[in-house]
Design a protein around this nucleic acid. Structure first.
Lengths: 243, 243
DNA sequence: CGAGACTTTGACCGTAGTCAATTTATGTGG
DNA sequence: CCACATAAATTGACTACGGTCAAAGTCTCG
C-alpha cells in the first residue's frame, strides 16, 4: 500500500527530474519487458550488485531509499535520500573500505541500468539530458546537506531538509502544494541530520509548536514556505537551464 | 616564501593524483607557454570566471585553496581543500543562489583548463585517467567529510581531517612521513569542521596534550598514525585500481 | 491480545558555542 | 632594529544546545 503511494504514476514521471520522461514513446512490448525486469526490495533491504560485478547502476522507480555509511562503531550517516526517478550507483563492499551503501526505506522498486529493457531508451538524448541534470542536482544537494549538517541549528536542519524534500517530491508529482507524505522514521531523520533520535523528536515538537509545520500521520505541511526558506537559508534547486 | 613551500616540484607532480604527471614529455616551448599563462592569487582571493563565461575549470598548480559557501548570515562552511594537482570548477555567482566559491588560502597558482597551453596535453590518455581518478577521489572525500561533520566528535574530526590531508600531501610529495606543513588558520579549520574557532583551539590543545599530534610553527606531526586511524575511523583513499 | 517498532517525555550530563580579554606572532614604516 | 598595528592563538567564565539513559506511551500487525 505504502509502496503505491510513493510511486511515480504514468504522468508523474514526466517531471524535469524524471529519468523516464521519454517512456511514453516506447512500444508496448518494450514496456512489458521493462516491468518484468523491475527489482523489488523491502524496507531495510540493501541494494547489492551481482556477485561478479563490482558496480551496479540503476534508477529508483518507486519508494524511498538512502545512501549511507555505518561506522565500525555503529554510528550511521545518511548522505542523500533517493526518490523515484533518481539514478544511483553502488559498489561492491571491499574489505578495509568504509561500508557505504544504498538501503530501502520504504518498499522499493528499482531497475538496473544495465538491463536490456532499458537499453532501448538509453540512447534517447532526452534521457541522457535528464540523467545529466539529475547528477548535477545531486552534487548540489550533497553540498546543501553539508551546510545543513555543518552550520545549521537543529530546527534549521529539519526545516531545510523538509523544504528540499518538498521541492523534489513536487517535481515528480508526489507533493501537492505544501503538503506531502514523509515515510521516514525519526531515527532516519536523526542519522541524516547528524543528530540524536531524541533530539530530533524534540525538535519536531518545537517546530510544530512554533507553527512552522504541521505533521500528522506521516504527512507534513509546511506553513508559510517563504518564511521557512528565509529562516533555514534554503534555496530551491535549479530546474533545467544548465548547459 | 610560503607559496614555494606549497608548490609541487618538477618531480613531486608525478604522484598518482597529479594531473600533470605527463608533463615531462612536453616540448620546452609548450612548457614556456604553459608557465606564462599561470594565474596567481593572494590569500583570501576568490577564483572568478571570465565576465562572459558561466563556468571556469582549472587545476591548482601550487598553494592551498578551499571550496566553500557563506550563508547570508555570515556562517561559512568549507566543503573541500584543494591542493596542488587538484582540478576545480567554479560557476558564475547567480542572484538568489547560494554563494559558493573557491578561495585561496595561501598564495595560489592555477591554470585554466581552457588554456591553449594545456590543450596540447589534454588529449593524452594518461592525463584523462588522472583527472578521472581525481574526480572519483574527490567524490569520496566529500562523503568522508560528511561523516566527519555529521557523526564524529571534535577530536575525531580534527584527527580524521589531518589524516586525510597527510595522505593527500604525501601523494604529491609535500609530506615526509608523518610530518607536513599545514598553512591553515584555526578559523579555517573551524569552518571546515563545523565547529567554532574557540572550540577548535581547545581541541588542538587536547589532542596535543593527549599525545596524538605535535604542532609547532604550522608544522604537524602525527604520532602513531595507525592508532589515529582506528581512533578517528579513517580509511585511506584508493590509489588507482579503479576501472 | 501480545510482540516489536516507533514516538514521546523526564532527568541529567557533557560537548560545544558565546563573549570578552589577554597573549603571541606577523608585519610595516620609521 | 624598534614601535606600533593587525592578525592569530589562547584562556576564562558562563551558557545552551544537543546527547544519553531510562521509562512510558502509541501504533501495527500477526
Amino acid at each position: 500500500m505504502s509502496a503505491v503511494s510513493h510511486s511515480v504514476g504514468p504522468s508523474a514521471a514526466m517531471g524535469p527530474a524524471g529519468a523516464f520522461s521519454a517512456m511514453h514513446a516506447l512500444r508496448a512490448e518494450q514496456v512489458r519487458a521493462f516491468w518484468q525486469s523491475v527489482e523489488r526490495l523491502e524496507p531495510g533491504g540493501r541494494i547489492a550488485c551481482a556477485p561478479k560485478c563490482d558496480v551496479k547502476r540503476g534508477v529508483i522507480l518507486s519508494g524511498w531509499a538512502c545512501e549511507m555509511q555505518i561506522l565500525p562503531d555503529g554510528r550511521r550517516q545518511i548522505f542523500t535520500f533517493l526518490l523515484p526517478g533518481d539514478p544511483f550507483v553502488v559498489e561492491a563492499p571491499k574489505p578495509d573500505r568504509p561500508s557505504r551503501g544504498v538501503i530501502a526505506i520504504t518498499p522499493l522498486q528499482i531497475i538496473d541500468a544495465a538491463n536490456p529493457a532499458i537499453e532501448a531508451i538509453r540512447s534517447r538524448e532526452s534521457l541522457a539530458r535528464a540523467i545529466e541534470l539529475a547528477i548535477q542536482q545531486k552534487e548540489a544537494r550533497l553540498l546543501d546537506h553539508m551546510v545543513r549538517i555543518g552550520r545549521l541549528s537543529a530546527p534549521e536542519r529539519v526545516l531545510h531538509l523538509l523544504l528540499e524534500l518538498r521541492d523534489r517530491l513536487e517535481a515528480i508529482g508526489l507533493a501537492k502544494g505544501d503538503t506531502f507524505r514523509l515515510p521516514l522514521t525519526q531515527e532516519v531523520f536523526a542519522d541524516a541530520l547528524g543528530l540524536s533520535l531524541v533530539h530530533i523528536n524534540r525538535t519536531f515538537k518545537q517546530v510544530r509548536r512554533d507553527g512552522y509545520i504541521e505533521l500528522k500521520c506521516k504527512t507534513v505541511t509546511l506553513l508559510n514556505r517563504e518564511r521557512l526558506r528565509a529562516l533555514a537559508f534554503y534555496s530551491p534547486p535549479l530546474t533545467s537551464d544548465a548547459a
